[in-house]
Amino acid sequence: MKIRALVLTGEGINCDYETALAFSRAGASAQRMHINDLIESPKQLEAFHALAIPGGFSFGDDLGAGKAFANKIVHAVGKEGKLFDSIVNFIEEGKPVIGICNGFQIFVKSGLLPALGGKYGEQQVSIFYNDSGRFENRWVKLKAPESNSILLRGIGQLEVPCRHGEGKFIADNNMLSKLWEKKLVCLQYADSEGKPTMSFPENPNGSMNAIAGICNEKGNVLGLMPHPEAFLFATNHPQWAREKPDTWNGQGLKIFENAVKYVRENYR
């Protein structure tokens, strides 16, 4: 069966090429599609098995990272109805969905994640300016605590780059405990020993509970600040030349392979 992954582009999304590559290296057939084309005909989504909103600088981060794009997604109406409803349907069907960096910010600000209690459209957490007050490009270690995420199955640790100015995950205490309770916290910034950390630069933005990524209750939607699609080849790692790798694949690929595997097992 041909597994089809849709990767959104447009309005300043700029990691669409490598995100599409990630899916195709994982065995899917990936298509980049401009958000305006999807808005025009949201029903197109039904033909796909996986969806990604990649990283980038949609609308230049004006009005806060991801906000303007979220606003567009929430309110856009095409010939066949609201884009937002189609995306919610897609999520409800349990198909894998990933939002990376700007994509994660868009998910959070449009109320697609975590969407506890099925309250799509309600912003329940937020992502704020880094504590350092500036954009940071640096590699981080991530710990994957036990969670619902289907995309992180079999992944305990992961090294990937962070590249953002607004990546600090925040939520109120009540929400935080719910996220933990329901096993929605699926990635945390970790120190050299693999333990979650609040110290800079291992935690590059000061995220609460060192949270780098969360998923929804079903586990099919993953949002994360770091960039797994930037680690598809071992040579992407800043220290590959120090420790000649066993495989020339990068660790980030596994997340996309999980998506493809999940589709293969559940949507034949």
Partner: peptide
């Protein structure tokens, strides 16, 4: 560090 030197994943 304030320049994104890895976008496009070619680094």
């Amino acid at each position: 560090r304030q320049y994104d030197h890895e976008v496009l994943g070619m680094s």
